[in-house]
Computed example of a mutant assay.
Amino acid sequence: MRMTRFITTFAYVGLLRPAPGTWGSAVAVVLAIGIDYLLGFWVLAAATLAITLLGFWACAQALRGRPGEDPAEIVIDEVAGQWLALLFPAAAFWWMGLHDWAWRAYPGWVAAFLFFRLFDIWKPWVIGRADRRQDPAGVMLDDLWAGAFAGVATVIAAGVSHGLLL
């Protein structure tokens, strides 16, 4: 149980107050930038998949027998969703051969963070539907949908900003 709590709170980041979800997302951004910069895009993609799978498992363990609960200290879902959102600009820069994008293109990760928090809090359409599942999978799914929406919004914003989509 102690290991499950360590995982679901993402090394106890989820115990920070106020706004543990925002803290989880902020720590996720810093770690994702470091992974991408030091180890590359494909390691970030693999880490995102691994943290997502680990999150589904850990949430199922932590919330067994507690239907409908989504405790604020569980932030592994924010980490998975935030990393998914960051994969979009990371993939775009990887495709262009820019491996140090986070240092030169800070609006990309800032936009991914802000869009992720917006969609995670607002919960439009399928994000809200996933949140209303009231099960451990729903805890993860709403943040993964928010991450996907944030990633697409980040790429669109970049296209508009750079005049590619005007």
Rank of each mutant, 00 (worst) to 15 (best):
F115M: 00
Q82A: 14
L39N: 12
A72Y: 08
A85P: 09
G97V: 03
R104W: 15
G55P: 14
C59Y: 04
F93N: 06
G68E: 03
L118D: 01
F41D: 00
R64V: 10
G55W: 15
L31H: 01
V79P: 15
V43Y: 09
L54S: 07
H99W: 09
F88K: 10
G81T: 07
P107R: 00
G97D: 05
V30E: 02
Q82C: 14
V79Y: 11
I121S: 05
W83D: 15
L114M: 14
A32M: 10
I51Y: 06
L39E: 01
A50I: 02
G55D: 10
F113V: 05
P107V: 06
D120F: 04
A45N: 04
L44S: 12
A32S: 05
V75S: 03
G40V: 04
G81Q: 12
I121A: 09
T48L: 11
L118V: 12
A58C: 09
I35K: 00
L98W: 05
P89K: 06
R117S: 11
R117Y: 03
W103E: 05
A28L: 03
V30A: 08
A72R: 13
L63W: 10
R66Y: 13
L31Q: 09
D36H: 09
W122S: 08
G128M: 13
A111E: 00
A90W: 08
W125K: 06
W42Q: 08
A60T: 09
D120R: 11
A47N: 06
A46P: 03
P67W: 02
P67E: 05
R117M: 04
K123P: 07
L87G: 02
V110Q: 01
I121D: 02
L44K: 12
A46D: 00
I35M: 06
W57H: 14
V126I: 13
T52R: 13
A102N: 05
H99G: 12
Y106C: 00
A72Q: 13
F41Q: 02
L54A: 15
A60N: 01
Y37Q: 10
L63K: 08
L87W: 08
R66K: 14
W125E: 11
I35E: 04
L87M: 13
W83N: 02
D120P: 06
R104K: 12
T52I: 13
F88C: 03
A58R: 10
H99Y: 02
W122F: 12
A80F: 02
D70T: 00
L38D: 14
D100R: 10
F88V: 15
G34S: 06
A92D: 13
L86A: 06
D70W: 03
W95E: 04
W57R: 03
G108A: 13
A62V: 06
G65E: 08
W125Q: 06
V79T: 15
G34L: 11
